[in-house]
Design a protein around this nucleic acid. Structure first.
Length: 254
DNA sequence: TCTGGGGTCCTAGGACCC
DNA sequence: TCTGGGGTCCTAGGACCC
């Protein structure tokens, strides 16, 4: 099973010796019993199609979407239904008269690479055909820890911004320590009242989980942003991580 | 449709090294 | 000293997801 956020998961049932009906019945009954909630399930030959299928009959449905169904069931859908296509890409595609997944699939690869770059263009080419070989990820390592906060009211007072930055730094450090990681890169984020958003990053030479060091880095970054407008949000992120338990220190129990 | 908070991945440019 | 190619690392911003 791969966890995807708070209320989604992919299950590889390849080797489960039960019918689709038995499996989905068991899942639905289990979720109902434990939470009182219904759920929607998509059954497919890969994660991409399963995700789309799970969305097709929303409350309490079961939808099967196999490769043979791509033309009839996937292609009529709006591009926005494709995992990885958000509002920006939807707009971009609309600009070149592409509104359905079928129309997207009709575009030659070269055209997609031109418009969307190598990586994303290739992804769109395959996704529009229902192709996806990504494996279930049952275990992963965090890449960053962060905290951010939006003020109730936009703030002009540097003291308030500074105190918030210090508080957030502390929370990030606690989270990081709890998971037994150290970081080398500290990034801060400032969003102004007009939603203009800036980030400033700093990479230090040694991995650290020291609150003082991380707070100081955050403040060094803050100095590099001119606070000429009211501030709506501040954030702190620690990345470029190393796992302490990967160098002979005990793994955390979480 | 927007906002908020937690993430990931990608790109482009610059600095630096061999 | 200059040019070029290849590679790595860092930074800033953007798109997307739940």
């Amino acid at each position: 099973m791969e966890d995807v956020g708070i209320d989604e998961a992919y299950l590889d049932v390849t080797d489960i010796p039960e019918t689709n009906e038995e499996i989905t019945g068991r899942i639905k009954a289990g979720i109902k019993e434990k939470t009182g909630l219904t759920c929607s399930i998509g059954i497919a030959s890969n994660k991409l199609l399963a995700k789309i299928a799970s969305d097709m009959q929303k409350p309490d449905g079961v939808t099967v979407l196999m490769e043979a169904d791509v033309e009839t069931k996937l292609w009529p859908l709006p591009v926005r239904k494709l995992y990885g296509i958000g509002p920006k890409t939807e707009e971009h595609l609309k600009g070149i008269n592409i509104e359905t997944i079928g129309q997207l699939a009709a575009l030659p690869l070269e055209k997609l690479l031109e418009h969307f770059g190598n990586s994303y263009g290739q992804y769109l080419y395959e996704a529009a055909r229902g192709m996806d070989e990504s494996p279930l990820v049952t275990h992963w390592e965090p890449k960053s820890f962060s905290r951010e906060t939006t003020f109730q009211e936009d703030v002009r007072d540097w003291q308030v911004i500074a105190r918030t930055l210090a508080d957030l730094s502390k929370e990030v450090v606690q989270d990081m320590q709890g998971h037994r990681y150290k970081a080398r890169t500290i990034t801060i984020k400032i969003r102004f009242s007009d939603f203009e958003t800036f980030t400033r990053a700093m990479t230090i030479s040694d991995y650290t989980d020291s609150e003082e060091e991380i707070r100081k880095s955050a403040f060094a970054c803050l100095k590099r942003i001119e606070l000429k407008k009211k501030v709506r949000l501040v954030g702190v992120r620690a990345s470029n991580l190393i796992a302490l338990w990967a160098c002979g220190i005990n793994r955390p129990a979480y």
